[in-house]
Amino acid sequence: MRPMKKIRVLIVDDSIVFRETLSQKLSANPQLEVVGSAADTFDAMEKIKQLRPDVLTLDVEMPKMNGIDFLKKLMPTDPLPVVVVSSLPINAFEALDAGAVDFVRKPSAKSSSDITDFINELIVKIKIASTAHVGKKLSAIPQPATQFTADIDNMVIAIGASTGGTEAILSVIKDLPVTTPGIVIVQHMPPVFTKMYAQRLDKNCIMSVKEAENLDRVEKGKVIIAAGENHLTLARDARGFYVKSRPGQKVSGHCPSVDVLFDSVASIAGSNAIGILLTGMGADGAKGLLNMRKNGAYTIGQNKESCVVYGMPMVAYNIGAVTKQLPLLDITGDIIGYMNKIGNTKK
């Protein structure tokens, strides 16, 4: 039996102590091989040419050229899966915008448990990044209808995503009009980062976007993003839909969990819902999407070609949870088309 090919990793960080610690810890994993390290981005560019790593770990704050500018220079010519290591949400999101696959939050404390958790998360994300599709340029965005032709009440849209999801979610919701039914979203992300992500989306979308707070109302023109380490569920009273945002144990490996959200939408909204599962590793959301479809919801899965990681939507498709599988850039128009169809049918 041939031995499994190891994932070749290059570490880029200006701290020699941090580089040595990462190298030692990552090398201890039998699936990883640290092929080298670089103290700055200029050194990194040369090491990439010499060593041809499979994945790069990248600090953002470095001398000579910061990690964001480095990514903008690297990705158009030598696209490579990059996992950013940063303590600041703003840096992490700018890195994702520049082409990084994912990010890991630097441990704020130096306790052994914090460092162990950080290393374990980094190893998982390096393995995921090694399977990611990077450097693909999506075709021009189709021009969907800018407005609904029917006024839809009593509906909700639920979206789930993981690796690659920050940009995918923006692509789906950016141009949806204020007449769009309320949207609830789970994107796998730690605390603090989810609030920053919601704020970034709010600046770039027509609809208003906020991080979930317990008992927030789900209303037209409003998007609610699950808070890190809190499950998001849909509920209903005489006034309509609202959300519950509460801490809990991991479900399907995550908190917040897409499965938890989708299961609640299936139960509360039934056929008055659209479920959308986007790029991400693993299976979170697949069973929940199937539950939604069984309860009459219209369900969409992102297709393989447009996913950064075709994991969650692949599992959903394979178990029959997906009504329609679509390229990322076709999803917005399909949402509007479906809503107009059912709205006009109800007239």
Rank of each mutant, 00 (worst) to 15 (best):
K64D: 02
S257R: 09
P144R: 12
G164D: 08
H188N: 11
T179Y: 01
S37L: 01
L32D: 02
G165D: 06
S171M: 14
N120G: 02
S171R: 15
P181L: 00
I173R: 04
L234M: 09
K294T: 07
I331E: 02
S252I: 04
T233A: 02
A168D: 09
D334M: 01
F93C: 05
V260A: 03
G320H: 10
A269V: 01
D54G: 09
M75G: 10
H254Y: 14
A168R: 11
T345L: 08
L277D: 02
G296P: 12
E211G: 01
M155P: 00
I335S: 06
D40S: 03
V17G: 03
V60S: 01
V9Q: 10
N154W: 02
A145E: 12
A273V: 01
R2N: 13
D114W: 07
A283L: 04
E211C: 05
S108K: 15
A109N: 13
T279M: 06
M292F: 05
S271Q: 14
R52F: 00
L26E: 09
F70V: 11
A212N: 01
L170Q: 10
I123L: 03
D54S: 10
Q199P: 00
N230G: 00
T163H: 07
P89Q: 10
K195P: 00
D114Q: 15
I225L: 11
N154V: 00
K346W: 00
I169Y: 06
V258S: 02
E305T: 07
I183F: 06
G164Q: 08
E219G: 00
G333W: 05
S264Q: 12
T146S: 14
I331L: 09
H188S: 12
S162P: 12
T146A: 08
V209A: 04
V265T: 04
V82P: 09
K110E: 14
G248V: 13
L232F: 07
Q325W: 00
L122N: 05
A150W: 04
I126W: 03
S171D: 14
K174Y: 03
L138I: 13
I16A: 13
V12Q: 09
D202Q: 07
K294L: 08
V322C: 06
S23T: 13
L170N: 05
L71W: 08
A38E: 07
S108V: 12
N204G: 00
D334W: 03
G165F: 10
A109T: 15
G182E: 05
I141R: 13
Y317W: 08
G240T: 12
L138S: 11
V315I: 15
N295Q: 15
P53I: 00
M339F: 12
L80G: 03
I336N: 02
V186N: 04
F262S: 06
T179E: 14
N295A: 11
M196L: 02
G36F: 01
T299F: 02
A140I: 09
R2F: 12
A92P: 04
T149R: 14
K47D: 01
I336A: 11
A145P: 00
T194A: 06
Q50K: 14
A269R: 09
S15L: 10
I173E: 01
E121I: 13
F18D: 04
A92H: 03
P3N: 06
S264L: 13
N318A: 14
D69F: 02
I119K: 11
R2V: 15
